[in-house]
Nucleic acid binder design. Sequence first.
DNA 1: TAGATTGTTAATCGATTAACAATC
DNA 2: TAGATTGTTAATCGATTAACAATC
Lengths: 231, 231
Amino acid sequence: MPHQNISKTAIKRLPVYLRILDQLIRRDVTLISSRELSNESGFTAEQIRKDLAYFGAFGTRGAGYDTAFLRDKIIKIIGLDVKTNVIVIGAGNLGTALTRYNTAKNPYVRIVAVFDNAPDLIDQKIEEINIMPLDKLSEVVKKHDVKVSIITVPADAAQQTTDLVVSNGIKAILNFAPAKLNVPSDVHVHNADLTIELQSLIYYSSAEEERLARLKHEAKVKKTPKTFTIE
Amino acid sequence: MPHQNISKTAIKRLPVYLRILDQLIRRDVTLISSRELSNESGFTAEQIRKDLAYFGAFGTRGAGYDTAFLRDKIIKIIGLDVKTNVIVIGAGNLGTALTRYNTAKNPYVRIVAVFDNAPDLIDQKIEEINIMPLDKLSEVVKKHDVKVSIITVPADAAQQTTDLVVSNGIKAILNFAPAKLNVPSDVHVHNADLTIELQSLIYYSSAEEERLARLKHEAKVKKTPKTFTIE
DNA sequence: TAGATTGTTAATCGATTAACAATC
DNA sequence: TAGATTGTTAATCGATTAACAATC
């Protein structure tokens, strides 16, 4: 297979497979079929096999996948075999939650520092990690060769924060600010705007058909010719 | 257009358009073209026009879209014209962050209560919103006719929490727990597993080609016939 | 009328699903 | 060998992009 294009949706599923394999290995399961992986992940068995096939042939026909072997491969595919140093910008509730969670539960990354300009937060700690002012960012990024930044600042500070991290060589940004970030083409941005997640979910939470029918009805009313009418 | 299938990806973009229209209206902009909306959102103008066309013809040829009119339409399409009552389960940092953010910045939803079983959290407040034990959930859901729940509990409590909210009539779940939730087919789940977002971003943060080439090389080495070799 | 921009149809692209040969 | 499950190719589906007629 000479450089097939790797589907972006497949990349998003790899961490799910990794999480499941981690769990299985903890339960001493050594072999798993794509059918069983499907039950655990919610993705189809065909899709799982196809996702993995982009990168190689990791299973054994007739048997399934060796859990430890497959985990090792996925870790290398994603690039988690070397711990990734990450910075967090914004030490509010969300920045704090992400820092705590990743420090405690995500063994593949290391949050090296949290940045915030609020004077009362500086020199405090979140789970042993220092909160620092933004003017220390350059130094920290160089020292730990940081390539990934999580941004949890307010929307109106998002672009200037982005410009700062990009100018310091950051290549990937996980953006929680409700704002579009302008970046050079070699910088990757994943938007994780939680308000958008919630609002698009609300679309599905109540009678969709009915709502859209009402909308169509209104449109008709609106298009009634605007002549003088007797009230 | 007799009931065209509405694309799921279009639904995810509607809240982005809404956010931009809110900003434009605040800046007293009354008319906007799809080209300008494209600049603000990062989606193409063609895509924006197509997304809106699923629901009606809201623009004026030659001119563009009336910002207030289009905002009103999008609000009705998503179903945000009536404030949506939402509950949050899990009063940790993430639950707190989401509660604060939505209370302060998202005028379209109302968080009516936060649930947690930790005794020291009960009866505390997050921005005027009570933290309650889970045995009060049924009562609150009935009282406020809640249909949407945000789940921010640990992975091992996610399914039982889900079963609880589903049995109380919740129809949409925004799930932050790193776990697959099993729900009846009439309940919608949006997964927002932040670890997965971060890990899939890491895939793009460092030399992809190189990493995958190394993987392929390893595979070759592994497949060397296992005969006796002279060291 | 001329210029601009929408709404819609057609063409392309990418992702998922189905099917099955390969092979453990 | 028979049964099982992978890896891969072909068919389908859905989403995006391109093009342009409609129309303000």
